[in-house]
């Protein structure tokens, strides 16, 4: 008797991803589709994609989605969630979107304890526009606007947005994960699932920061990109639960 052990998530539309080979977005889209299916919330979930590579998330995820101006996802999600408090509302944002142009919206949504979930995809660069320096670009890391590497004196340091958000009273769960290995992908899935469950219990602002490979703009192959996350990026952005005031209330 054959048993199916792996299939395409039902909530992933039958479209070919436009993402570059080795990009983390495709993995994350799949995880989100799986999680929404497993939690059985497709009928009450609304997603807010950003400006950036993932703006086309609605081409892949078979759920209600409303596109936000660059950086304003948390404000748009606030408007949706406050109008429909019993729906599950999440934003999906890149590092430039959330940690540069959308810093204010994000910090204040967290501080208000907006009962939404944010998936923060950190690949250390502006991917869609061609790999410019992001607020999360590492010191010394090359980008199209930091030829020769990010220089602290000129460009400042990589921003610890998740840690900053953890300081707000309204945030209850913030974890940093990555999708550079099957084991880490499973951990990321657990983290996003937990974040959704926290929202469904009405407990407050939750965020999962996912370190994600961008082989195209890093000018590396996929294997090296995953290794670079493991060996280099996690030194600046360590994988950990940054804040969890929920504890055993959510398993």
């Amino acid at each position: 008797m054959e048993k199916k052990v792996f299939e395409r998530p039902k909530l992933l539309k039958k479209a070919v991803f436009h993402y570059c080979p080795g990009c983390g977005h495709s993995i994350l889209h799949r995880l989100i589709a799986e999680i929404i299916e497993e939690l059985d919330i497709a009928h009450k979930v609304v997603g807010v994609p950003p400006a950036g590579c993932a703006v086309l998330a609605y081409d892949y995820l078979d759920i209600d989605m409303g596109e936000s101006p660059h950086g304003r996802c948390a404000a748009v999600a606030t408007g949706i969630k406050r109008s429909l408090p019993d729906r599950v509302v999440f934003t999906y944002q890149g590092d430039g979107d959330i940690a540069a142009i959308g810093t204010a919206e994000t910090i204040h949504a967290a501080n208000r304890g907006e009962n939404i979930t944010t998936i923060f995809v950190n690949n250390g660069c502006y991917g869609m526009t061609g790999g410019q320096m992001a607020p999360t670009t590492l010191i010394g890391q090359n980008s199209s606007t930091t030829p020769g590497g990010r220089d602290y004196a000129r460009d400042g340091a990589p921003i610890d947005l998740s840690e900053m958000l953890a300081l707000t009273k309204g945030s209850v769960y913030i974890e940093r994960t990555t999708v550079n290995s099957p084991a880490n992908i499973r951990k990321t899935k657990r983290a996003i699932t937990r974040a959704f469950k926290i929202q469904m219990a009405g407990l407050g602002f939750s965020l999962v920061e996912v370190l994600s490979p961008c082989p195209t703009n890093w000018k590396m192959n996929t294997v090296d990109s995953c290794k670079w996350i493991e060996e280099t990026i996690t030194k600046t952005y360590p994988l950990k639960v940054i804040k969890d005031t929920v504890g055993d209330k959510i398993q």
């Binding site: 609304v46 807010v48 409303g66 936000s68 101006p69 304003r72 404000a75 748009v76 999600a77 606030t78 408007g79 949706i80 969630k81 406050r82 109008s83 919206e105």
Partner: peptide, 8 residues
């Protein structure tokens, strides 16, 4: 942008 979300 909150209004944008609410309008959605």
């Amino acid at each position: 942008n909150m209004v944008l979300g609410a309008a959605m």
